[in-house]
């Protein structure tokens, strides 16, 4: 059950077998873990770089990609302005797309 692309191929069954193998190795490593770990003690307490977290602190969904969104901010702000929600812009951009496609067909 493999599909080829001319160069490479993709076989989900092989991938699943490999993935199961990797999981098995991981499980074996996990079994070798520290025997001194105990549930219910302070070892389970969350901490952030040595400090105890304040009560109620958590990682929200938006925090996961905060740095990423921050890095792309200039681009995202422009894209936000591009999606203005104004109906005239919708039609205007449709005209632009139309002219692009007409020009491409005419010239190429």
């Amino acid at each position: 059950m493999r599909i080829g692309s001319g160069e490479g191929f993709w076989s989900p069954i092989v991938w699943v077998i490999l993935a199961l193998g990797v999981l098995a190795i991981g499980f074996a490593v996990w079994l070798q873990g520290r025997r001194t770990y105990k549930r219910g003690t302070e070892q389970e307490e969350p901490f952030l770089s040595g400090e105890r977290l304040p009560e109620g602190a958590g990682v929200g969904a938006t925090h996961l990609y905060w740095g990423f969104a921050e890095a792309l901010k200039p681009l995202l702000v422009r894209l936000g302005a591009f999606h203005s929600g104004f109906l005239g812009d919708y039609v205007g951009w449709l005209l632009v797309l139309l002219v692009i496609s007409i020009l491409v067909v005419m010239l190429g």
Partner: peptide, 10 residues
Amino acid sequence: DAGKIRELKG
């Protein structure tokens, strides 16, 4: 006014 009816943006 279409300029004011733009809650769906971004």
